[in-house]
Simulated assay, not measured.
Amino acid sequence: MTHTYRIAAIPADGVGAEVVSAGRQVLDAVAAASAGRFSFDWTEFPWGSEYYAQHGQLMPSDGLEALTDFDAIYFGAVGWENVPDHVSLWGLRLNITQNFDQWANIRPVKFLPGVNSPLRAADDRELDWIVVRENSEGEYAGLGGRNLSGRGPGNEVAVQSSLFTDKGCERIIRFAFELARTRSVKKVSSVTKSNAQQYGMVLWDEVFARVAQEYPDVATESVLVDAMSAKFVLHPEELSVVVASNLNADILSDLGSALAGSLGLAASANLNPEGRFPSMFEPVHGSAPDIAGQGICNPIGAIASGALMLRHFGLEAEAHAVERAIESATGAGHLTRDLGGTASTEDVTHAIVEALEQELATQLAVVSA
């Protein structure tokens, strides 16, 4: 009997439409090779900056209700010149992640064969780590306001407050420890700036120390964010799972992807681990207006996000096959311009699908034998 996964696709803006289309091709190829075990039922929502131009909002007021019954959300990128960035982010992406309590954000840092890294340490060693980002509170809680503008130019005051709760810190830190137990290197690096931010991030440090006592099999370290930025560059071989607050993990994960070769490689999963709401999977890169519609954007971040979605559904072998296909494609020289190549979005997608079909056929032959 075929299991059908209902997926809400939100391409949104710019290159989002191109990379979501590429990811769908790969995921549909996975389903086609499953011998009827599962399929994907896609529903696409036309939300984003163009929708805003027509309706004055990034998504309709009942948009969250429309998404509730889907098994997952596959997101592209949001942002265009007709909408201020903070409006587009809070009007769509953060509207979904906050209201669906997608509190765990996973961002793997992948160094792929055939991709030149600016990091010399990547030349002679295998580097692979995961940034776990607290995704529901911290610096992106949205607390604060702007006041006193009526007093005239130069008198307005803006207050932006970070929110750290014991519960919020514990659940993401515990998530990181559980993830570390699944990896060959069982280590969690906690990142804060608690020497300067002496309330919320000291609470984080205290919760980390408390939770760590329950995981004696997992190595730990607590590192200030500036020192961790240096470690990403100078000693990346010491990293396995890095857990940090909303803002710090956002910045560090972008640094990791740049070290791996390009933000176009970066995948992410916004998870509601309890399953009360659908989780959302998206590439880390933005809408890239400068190259949108030219067919040259890098689809790997979106395709790798699709692999994270497969793993979320428990389709581990299929997720691994997609990741192996990405490695085969880049190793064979199928690289977009951001990686120093000349391949188009379609070229890379086709190469990954072709490698994927071979990978899945090999897996099937092994199982049959």
Rank of each mutant, 00 (worst) to 15 (best):
H3I: 06
T4F: 01
T4W: 01
Y5Q: 02
A8C: 09
A8I: 07
A8N: 07
I10F: 09
V15A: 05
E18K: 01
Q25A: 12
D28Q: 05
A29P: 01
S34K: 02
S34D: 07
A35I: 00
A35W: 02
A35N: 14
S39C: 05
S39F: 02
F40S: 03
F40E: 02
T43I: 04
F45S: 05
Y52C: 07
Y52W: 15
Y52Q: 07
Y52H: 15
Q57P: 00
M59F: 06
E65F: 01
T68N: 12
F75M: 13
G76T: 06
G76C: 05
G76V: 06
G79P: 07
W80M: 09
S88F: 11
L92A: 11
F100E: 10
W103S: 07
I106N: 01
R107L: 00
P108F: 00
F111Y: 09
V115N: 04
N116S: 13
N116A: 13
N116M: 06
R120D: 09
D128A: 14
V132T: 11
S136K: 07
G138Y: 01
G138N: 07
Y140M: 13
A141F: 10
G144E: 13
G145T: 09
N147G: 08
S149I: 08
G150D: 13
G152E: 12
G152T: 11
E156H: 08
A158R: 10
S161L: 15
L163E: 04
R183T: 03
Y199I: 14
L203S: 09
D205T: 11
V211Y: 11
V211D: 12
V211T: 13
Q213W: 00
S222M: 14
V223K: 06
V223L: 14
D226P: 08
D226Q: 03
M228C: 01
K231G: 01
V233I: 15
V233G: 10
P236K: 07
P236Q: 05
L239S: 03
V241R: 04
A244Q: 00
L247M: 15
D250H: 04
G256T: 08
S257N: 12
A258W: 00
L265P: 03
A266M: 00
A267D: 00
P273M: 03
R276T: 14
F277T: 04
P289E: 04
D290A: 13
I291F: 04
N298A: 09
P299A: 06
P299C: 06
P299K: 02
P299D: 05
P299L: 05
I300W: 04
I303P: 05
A304M: 14
A304T: 13
A304W: 01
A307Y: 05
L310D: 01
E318Y: 07
I326H: 02
E327G: 10
S328N: 14
A329M: 03
L335W: 00
D338W: 06
S344I: 08
T345Q: 11
E346C: 09
V348C: 11
T349W: 05
V353S: 11
E354W: 01
A355V: 00
Q358I: 07
A365L: 14
V367F: 06
S368E: 14
